[in-house]
Design a protein around this nucleic acid. Structure first.
Lengths: 215, 215
DNA sequence: ATACGGAATTAGCCATACCTAAATAGTAAA
DNA sequence: TTTACTATTTAGGTATGGCTAATTCCGTAT
């Protein structure tokens, strides 16, 4: 159930849009029918966690949002902890955090946050929500949607694909790095990384993993 | 299933004695019937993890022992990690470790061990088995069975009762502490703690939590 | 040798969360 | 407006690991 709440939160995005059965099924790697079943179970929970209307999708209630953001906080704290303390590489943290986020206690959460000094972002640049609070959304867009020749700073990267993360690291495309898009074609982008001055070609899939914001 | 393997290991002790359904049910806080069901499932696993004969109890095979010791290693590493790194008090570590031991990856295990410098004992004095190896059993006896007036060193303490642990800590009865039993009655023991020189009265339940060895 | 009592097992259920296959609802195009 | 496609839901089944109640086994004490 936790997984569903988190997925609804993440798929709904900043607008908290209604999320479809199909989108949830894809994200959670289960069948549509399983999602329907689970949504019905979730909708029967008291206190109410989701608003679900048949054939119309699902949204989180305030209580559902609280729970989901708590999981996101767990996840991002764990990622940073695994990276900074246990010396995981940044492509290794997601999978372990995804598993452990469900099982750590409040005490664990608090101690990790304390050790890390109440950090603001995880290794992929995502904001770590404050305890008991909803996360905030940054203004960021995927790199292919950024205008040409305009300075941008990488705000975060997609964390669910280890191979892409390794590639990004190899290319020095980490959160905080400034760049500009020189060319944006169907199949690839050419970017200039400010600190290096060098031009780099990124295929579309990789470019889609990069979120940028104005500097 | 993991819980059952670990319980069989721990209840079997150094002699690797056959473990009864009832003993398992008590340790795992489930009903006898549930244990019988689970033992049948375990006995049907390939590779074979347990030797189970109806009405005669259960023992671990070599493969079952490997798995169980791995869990014990996870548990004890986690306890030390929670204590030393996350600053848990020693009465708080057991519960969290008991939950997390099932979910950490091999990588997590290895990194924790590395950070802690391949430690030998957990906060309660229990030996941490080496990776991929069976644990070894120390010669230790519970304090009430130790002869009067003979110097003993606390080798380990029972870790499953937080209140007792807090009491032991308050009394300075930690692993490594030397003491002698002055008086051993039905209801309590009087011990002299070497470093303090002071006498302390322990009720029987508390004394049973303390395992000692010759210095 | 037998009867008793506790330990263990069987039989039959429950809940969770997944699955496939079949039926239905909603939407967009003809 | 009807058709056709796709999303969604329903129906019915699986595995895991619990449960209670009823039965059976085993060892001890008579």
């Amino acid at each position: 159930m936790d997984d569903y709440l988190k997925a609804i939160l993440e798929l709904g995005g900043a607008e908290e849009a209604t999320v479809s059965t199909k989108a949830l099924a894809e994200r959670l790697a289960v069948r549509n029918a399983s999602v329907t079943g689970m949504l019905q179970k979730l909708a029967a929970q008291r206190p109410l966690l989701v608003l679900y209307e048949k054939h119309r999708g699902v949204r989180l209630t305030a209580a559902g949002k609280r729970r989901a953001w708590e999981l996101v906080r767990h996840h991002r704290l764990l990622e940073l902890f695994l990276h900074d303390v246990l010396k995981y590489s940044w492509d290794e943290v997601h999978e372990e955090a995804e598993r452990l986020e469900h099982f750590i206690s409040e005490r664990f959460e608090d101690r990790v946050a304390a050790i890390l000094g109440d950090p603001e972002t995880d290794p992929h640049g995502h904001l770590i929500p404050a305890k008991h609070e909803a996360g905030i959304y940054r203004e960021e867009v995927i790199l292919p949607d950024w205008p040409l020749q305009v300075r941008a700073v990488i705000s975060s990267v997609f964390d669910r694909n280890a191979a892409s993360l390794r590639e990004l690291e190899r290319l020095g495309l980490l959160p905080g790095v400034a760049l500009a898009v020189e060319k944006n074609s169907n199949s690839s982008l050419v970017v200039r990384v400010e600190s290096r001055g060098a031009f780099t070609r990124l295929d579309r899939d990789l470019a889609n993993c990069i979120l940028v914001a104005a500097s």
